[in-house]
């Protein structure tokens, strides 16, 4: 188990040192800042669109950060070493994604309320928004990890990762943004939250197997 945490910690340290955390949070804010320029500054309109916009920006931020999650390891030979670690590759992959989640996604989730305020969300809407994102983001990271692991041997695989991952993101987006939309109406949407949790749980079980298979294929 200590191997798991060591891997997780290493990934976190690297994400932090490489400035990935700062970049991702900045990306989120820039994305949100662009919205009023595109849509006009009417606060009512921004509020109505906020849940969808925030989810889209979150997804884009995640995808741009995920494309390098295994690629750096592929390029510097660490992927070979990951095959030989005293931990099955499925868990190695999981450890790295957990590190990624803590180092990048948690700061992003913490930044989301502030971004929401920029789009005229009231503080009362924020708990539900955060809850939906917290329930759905593990699925986003794990499913994006599948795209990243399939594209790992492609030199400039960023766009390919996005193209491969987006179809997997459709269901999470639908239920995540839907739950947030309900929050605007002052309702707590337990069904959608439960489905989001289900997506996260299912990807937790299935994604590591797919990622490990893709990575084993990449070192051949």
């Amino acid at each position: 188990m200590s191997v798991f945490w060591a891997l997780c910690r290493q990934h976190m340290v690297l994400a932090w040192r490489g400035g990935h955390t700062t970049l991702a949070v900045a990306f989120l804010f820039i994305g949100v800042t662009l919205m009023p320029f595109g849509l006009g500054p009417e606060l009512a309109l921004l509020q109505a669109l906020a849940p969808g916009l925030l989810w889209v920006v979150l997804v884009m931020t995640l995808l741009t950060s995920l494309d390098r999650v295994f690629q750096a390891d592929y390029e510097d030979g660490s992927l070979d070493q990951m095959m030989l670690m005293p931990l099955p590759l499925e868990f190695v992959v999981l450890a790295k994604l957990l590190g990624h989640y803590i180092a990048l996604v948690v700061p992003l989730l913490l930044a989301v309320p502030l971004a929401g305020l920029l789009l005229n969300l009231a503080p009362a809407h924020l708990p539900m928004l955060l809850l939906a994102m917290a329930a759905g983001s593990p699925a986003l990271v794990l499913l994006g990890g599948i795209g990243a692991s399939l594209a790992v041997s492609v030199r400039r695989g960023g766009l390919l990762t996005v193209l491969l991952s987006l179809p997997f993101y459709v269901p999470v987006m639908i239920f995540g943004a839907g739950a947030t939309q309900q929050a605007l109406a002052g309702e707590i949407d337990a069904t959608r939250l439960a489905i989001l949790c289900l997506f996260s749980l299912a990807s937790l079980l299935a994604a590591p197997v797919a990622m490990a298979a893709a990575l084993r294929n990449a070192v051949r």
Partner: peptide, 29 residues
């Protein structure tokens, strides 16, 4: 039960030498 040392050295530039040793020790159990 196998160590493999390839052409690529699997080192992370952002870590210090000491950290690399500590991480490697932990990673390899």
């Amino acid at each position: 039960g196998v160590h493999f040392m390839g052409h690529a050295d699997a080192l992370k530039n952002a870590l210090s030498v000491g950290e690399t040793l500590a991480f490697e020790a932990a990673l390899w159990g």
